[in-house]
């Protein structure tokens, strides 16, 4: 287990900086996810960390020792890292057991030792009965577990996961998220987890780094990122939200098209404008007489546990509201919304 530090890391392709002076510290034994849309530089970052790519600037150090800089990199095979690939990258010409044993054989361990560790890992992954099969004969979830087994069995210093669940169907994905966290809790490898799925990141990570345009937009614990986004990009990327734009009119107050909002937290842009985020489920919907903001229900969608409303405020903005399924309103009905200051957050951009 080793602390991983990326500092000022830069990678350019032509004039485009895929990774731009990126700083990130992964504490020993922590699982950090790099979260962002495609093209944000998260996969490039992972390739830099794994040693497949050479940085143009900055450095990567593992346990205090530099493994990558513009002057050179320690090649991937010498880094004692493991990686889980989007495609699983299982070798189709090797059986499950052979796939798992591959890294151990390279380490020239005694045969019996390899056998023992492979069996133990296959047990952990519940793959024992598939050991003689070829990857093509396994389901997607099983293949994923072989990939994990292969990566973990070598007891890497650092574990890298590149969108490991994106090829699985939804229910399996859900299950594997928990599996990955469970394994992390058990083995405590220093881990970087690349994903574009915020739910995946929230389930698995100690720390989430939201990336945009080769930079880290915001890093923090999952609840931190969710409850206290700093920018519109982060607020929108982590779960759905309502964004309201206007002017700052007081210490904690914004005016968005006539709608007055008090924000108890957040930071304001310096130019006097205001960007306010409020999550749909934080808005209270009540009768037309109640609430601070009157409006009309434009759409009402029943989701089972909840009801989803789109409300056009008289002041202008349209807001999404998630309410308990007990709170019933019809399309066209006049309602009043309450926007609690505790949940209105000012964003810097």
């Amino acid at each position: 287990m080793s602390k991983l530090v990326l500092s000022g890391l830069t990678k350019r392709y032509g004039s485009h900086a895929a990774v731009d002076t990126l700083d990130l510290t992964v504490e020993s034994g922590h699982l950090v996810s790099l979260l962002g849309p495609s093209g944000c530089g998260k996969t490039t970052t992972l390739r830099l960390v794994s040693g497949f790519a050479v940085p143009d600037g900055g450095s990567i150090s593992v346990a205090g020792q530099v493994v990558s800089s513009a002057r050179g990199v320690v090649p991937p095979e010498k880094r004692e890292m493991s990686m889980i690939f989007q495609s699983y990258a299982l070798w189709p010409h090797l059986t499950v057991a052979e796939n798992v044993a591959y890294g151990l054989k390279l380490r020239k361990l005694p045969r019996a030792d390899i056998e023992r560790r492979v069996q133990a890992m296959l047990d952990t992954m519940q793959l024992r009965r598939f050991e003689a099969r070829y990857p093509a004969e396994l389901s997607g979830g099983q293949q994923q577990r072989v990939g994990l087994a292969r990566a973990l069995v070598v007891e890497p210093k650092i574990l890298l996961l590149d969108e490991p669940l994106s090829n699985l169907d939804a229910s399996l994905r859900e299950e594997m998220r928990h599996e990955i966290r469970r394994l992390h809790d058990r083995f405590h490898y220093t881990t970087i987890y690349v994903t574009h799925d915020q739910a995946e990141a929230m389930t698995t990570s100690d720390l989430i780094a939201v990336m945009r345009d080769g930079k880290i937009e915001q890093a923090g614990a999952p609840d931190d990122i969710y409850e206290r986004p700093e920018t519109e990009f982060v607020a929108r990327f982590i779960g759905s939200t309502n964004i309201l734009r206007g002017r700052r009119v007081g210490e904690h107050e914004a005016d968005c098209d006539g709608l007055r909002l008090v924000c108890e937290s957040g930071h304001w842009p310096e130019d006097g404008s205001a960007v306010v985020s409020i999550r749909p489920h934080r808005i209270t919907l009540s009768g037309a007489a109640d609430g601070s903001a009157p409006g009309t229900v434009e759409r009402a969608i029943y989701l089972g546990a909840q009801r989803h409303y789109i409300v056009a405020l008289d002041a202008g903005p349209k807001l999404q509201v998630l309410a308990s399924s007990d709170v019933l309103a019809h399309e066209g009905e006049r309602v009043g919304l309450t926007l609690p200051p505790a949940h209105c957050r000012a964003l810097i951009r």
Binding site: S50, F52, P75, P76, E77, K78, R79, E80, M81, S82, M83, F85, Q86, S87, A89, L90, W91, P92, H93, Y102, G103, L106, R107, R150, A151, V154, L160
Partner: peptide, 27 residues
């Protein structure tokens, strides 16, 4: 041939040539 098959071999400790021989060549 997905390059990840080869990357997987390298990250597990095999050099470029070894990966070519053990993974790429058989495939």
């Amino acid at each position: 041939l997905n390059p990840e098959l080869e990357d997987a071999s390298r990250i597990l400790g095999a050099g470029r040539m070894k990966s070519l021989a053990k993974v790429v060549a058989p495939l």
